[in-house]
C-alpha cells in the first residue's frame, strides 16, 4: 500500500483531528479492499481519494446532517471580516513572509483552505484534489486561485508583496 502516507496527509487536510484522520484512512482502506474487484488497476491514487471522499461524506452526514453553507458566500463573508481584522495596521510589524502566508491560509474558509493545502502542501494535482473533495476541476482551480489571491493581498497589506497594479 504505497499510497497510505498520501492518504494520511490528505485525511489530515480534510479532518481537523489527527485521531479522526487515522479513522478516515482505516475506513478508506476497508472500503478499498471491499471493492477491489471493481478497480481496473489504473490511477490507484485517484481511486483511493474517491473512496476517501465518499467515506468522509458518510462520516459528515452521520455527525452533521444539516446542509452545508455555500462555500463561495463563505469567502465573500470572510473577505468582509478580513478587511477589519487584518487592516495593514493590524498586521504584526516585521512578520516574516512565511508567517503571513500561514496566517492568511488559516484565515481562509475551510473549503478554500483545504484546496490550497491539498495542492500546495500535500502536493496533489488539480485532478487529484478534485477527486479528494468531490468537486469539478474547474471549481478546484477557482477556489485555489481565489485563495492564493487572498494570501497575496494579505502579503501586500503587510508590505511583503507589491500592491496590485504596481509598475
Amino acid at each position: 500500500m504505497p499510497e497510505i502516507d498520501v492518504l494520511l496527509r490528505v485525511a489530515r487536510t480534510l479532518v481537523p483531528r489527527p485521531a479522526d484522520a487515522e479513522d478516515l484512512v482505516q475506513d478508506t482502506l476497508i472500503r478499498a479492499y471491499r471493492s477491489i474487484e471493481s478497480f481496473d488497476g489504473s490511477h490507484p491514487r485517484a481511486w483511493l481519494l474517491t473512496i476517501m471522499r465518499n467515506a468522509q461524506i458518510n462520516r459528515t452526514r452521520r455527525r452533521r446532517p444539516e446542509l452545508l453553507d455555500d462555500p463561495d458566500a463563505a469567502l465573500e463573508q470572510s473577505d468582509e471580516q478580513d478587511e477589519h481584522r487584518h487592516s495593514p495596521e493590524a498586521v504584526v510589524v516585521g512578520a516574516s513572509f512565511d508567517a503571513v502566508v500561514v496566517d492568511a491560509l488559516d484565515a481562509l474558509p475551510d473549503r478554500f483552505r483545504q484546496v490550497v493545502e491539498l495542492i500546495d502542501v500535500d502536493g496533489l494535482t488539480y485532478a487529484e484534489a478534485a477527486e479528494a473533495i468531490g468537486a469539478p476541476v474547474g471549481t478546484v482551480m477557482s477556489r485555489l486561485h481565489r485563495a492564493r489571491t487572498r494570501i497575496r493581498n494579505r502579503l501586500a497589506a503587510a508590505g511583503l508583496a507589491p500592491r496590485s497594479g504596481t509598475r
Partner: peptide, 15 residues
C-alpha cells in the same frame, strides 16, 4: 515571483 514565493512557503509547510 510573489505567487511562486507563496507556493514555496506553503510547500515548506509540508505536513
Amino acid at each position: 515571483e510573489t505567487y511562486q514565493a507563496i507556493k514555496d512557503a506553503l510547500a515548506r509547510r509540508g505536513r
